[in-house]
Structure formats: structure tokens, C-alpha cells
Simulated scan of single mutants.
Amino acid sequence: MRPARALIDLQALRHNYRLARRLGGGRALAVVKADAYGHGAVACARALEAEADGFAVAAIEEALELREAGITAPILLLEGFFEAAELELIDRHRLWTVVQAPWQVEAIARARLSAPLQVWVKLDSGMHRLGLSPAEFTGAWRRLRALPQVAGLVAMTHFARADELDSSRTAEQAAVFSDVLAGLDERPVASLCNSAAILGWPAVLPTPPADRDADAERSREEGGTSWARPGLMLYGANPFAGPHAGADLLRPVMTVESKLIAVRELAAGEPVGYGARYVTPMPMRIGVVAMGYADGYPQFAPDGTPVSIDGRPGRLAGRVSMDMLTVDLSGHPDATVGTPVQLWGDRVRADELARHCGTSAYELLCGLKRMPRGIRGA
């Protein structure tokens, strides 16, 4: 069997969720969209269900996969519903839904439901992707609040640049959100923070209502006083461009590893791989690893990209092929066929690899293909 595989550490996943919940200061929806960022949505949801406050997915297909697997916890549809007919499934499977456009408000008002819905109302505070404008938000909120089809409301927004710690945009968006909510007749349950905001922007975390406020009881009934939405950090990747003290507390959940399947003894001046991008500067040993871009490893990873060879630092030497890549075995005199190579995990962090390759940890994790997954820490 081809030795390339991905190992998923569910204990690390639980650790990262607990950290997100603690730093978020309230409740936390574990974001498991895109097959839990390539980690396996069902396995991750099962691992977290005993302690997670709920889950978030992109669309109803992902929610139904979790329900069919026996997940009974709350599941939020982050993109809401795409047509009014989906409300029947949302009702049947007791899903929570985002409302991000006026037509969705009217669709709920016309719906015949077996029980009222939990609705998250999204404000476009400046990302300009999905969400009600500040001018639309208050009217939509009040209309939804008055509907018998609605059990409870959460106000939410999404930050565009929370991973840029030197940008003022996150504080500006938080101020827009705060100003719009100040125009409501209540202090609503709020949800602002994705992974980068949880780790890097504690000042924008929602302030809970005081216990004496009439809204505090409603807040508790509708799911706590605030909700965080950790995604990337659940899987142990740093969302920032450089080191960060909070991100250093995360544990990588995915380890991608393979083995050497050949060792070449080359003279100085010999080309390695497609295009002769790498030429040996001296006599050296080159190892061939069963891993390539068809597995999800970046095709254009440059020479010198870090790997871990039998637990010690190594580096890429030559262009990545569809099924193989080549590494410099200088300093690894004992490396031979069958020697393990980690491509990313606890020794080479996914975000570190992404920086070398001009991509993101999101793309690496979500782009993993072909190789089997193994589970540990279940």
C-alpha cells in the first residue's frame, strides 16, 4: 500500500475547542464546514459533541450529513438557506439558520413550521460579502422578533481582516456592529469572532449584559450572552502571518506523513525532477517521497521548503510531481527506503508550510486528497 496518509488527533481537536471557548468568553460553535477543513466532519463532530455548544456548516447538505450520522447538537447554516423550500428541511431537522437578506425574512414570515426557528441575523459591517446593510438590519430584526415562526435571535457579523493585527479594519467593523445594535430595543446575544478575532482581538469580544438586565434572561434562553465561531484554530493552525502567543497554544490536529520510496546517489551538477529546477551543488543523496500535488501537497513548493525526515529537519529539493517529491538527505546518513517523512503536523506546522509556498493553511487543509485518514485520540 502507498504509505502516504493523514492522521487526525481528536484529543488535539478537543484541546483547541476548549481554548477557543475559554478565550471567546461565552459559547462557541465549532465550525466543521468543508468536511471540517479536510479533517472529516462526522469524526470531528462526534469527538466534540459531548462538550461543544453546537456546530456550524456552510450549507444544508453538510448539516444533513451530520444529522444522518446521529449528531443531535445545534447546527447553524452559516450561509442560510438558498431558497424558501429549504425551510421545510430546516424545520424537520431542527437546524439554526443565518438570515442575511430581506427575502429570507419574508420567506420565514410565510413559512408553516412545526416549531419556531433559532435565527442568526447577519449584519454587513464592512466585509461586503453577505449580510444586511446597517440601514436594513434594525427593521429586519424587529420583524423577525415579532414573528411566531422565530424562537430566538442572535446578531452576528464577520470580520474581513482579523488576521491582520496591524489593520484598523476589525475595530472599525466592531464599531459599526455596536452602533447598529445600540439602535435596537434590547441588548441581543451577539457573535462576532472567528478564529483570528478570538486569538488576536480580545477588545472586540461582546460585553455580556449585566445579570440584572431584563435581556440577560433572554440571552441565556437563546444560547448564552455571546457566541464565538472558531474554525481554523480548531484544527491547530495559526491564522496570522507570523508567530502569535495565543496561536502557540494550539495543537495541530492533522499530521500528513509518508515514507521514502527510493534513495538516489547523485554526483555534483545533476538535475533533480521536472524542469531541472534543482541541480545538486555537490555529490549528495536525494530521497524520493510518496507524496505529490495529487495528494494536496503544494505543486509549486520551492526548494528549501521544510519537511521532517525521521523526526529531524529536512528540506525539499526539486519540483513537486503529481505523486512524488524529492528531499535533500544531507545530514540524514541513515535515511533509507521506508524512513518516515512528515510533510506537515507537529514538526512542520501547516501555517509554516503555507508561508513557504505562498498559500494559506486553509487551502492546505481543505485541499487534502486521495490519501487515507487515520484517527487517534477517539
Rank of each mutant, 00 (worst) to 15 (best):
G152Q: 05
A175Y: 00
F81I: 13
A73H: 14
A84R: 14
A228R: 13
E265R: 11
Q299T: 00
L66N: 06
F82V: 04
D215M: 03
V99Y: 03
V32R: 11
P340N: 04
D351G: 05
P372M: 05
G200V: 09
T255Y: 00
G338L: 02
L76T: 07
P3W: 07
D248P: 00
S168A: 15
T138M: 02
S168Q: 12
L165T: 10
A140V: 06
F300Q: 14
F177S: 13
A290F: 10
R370F: 05
N238M: 12
A63R: 12
C44M: 02
P281Y: 09
M233R: 04
E61I: 00
S125R: 01
D303C: 11
A73N: 15
S167T: 12
G374A: 08
G38L: 12
R277S: 09
V119C: 04
A30Y: 02
A111G: 13
D303H: 13
C366M: 14
P281K: 07
H128I: 00
L260H: 09
D213R: 03
R277Y: 02
G304A: 05
A12L: 05
G292W: 06
G183H: 10
L147Q: 08
G314F: 12
R46G: 10
T207R: 15
L153R: 03
V57W: 09
T207S: 11
F137I: 02
Q104N: 04
G26A: 05
Q100E: 12
A4H: 11
L19H: 07
I108H: 10
A20D: 06
S195Q: 05
V189Y: 02
R169C: 01
E68H: 14
G25L: 11
G139V: 07
L165Q: 13
A146S: 15
V150N: 05
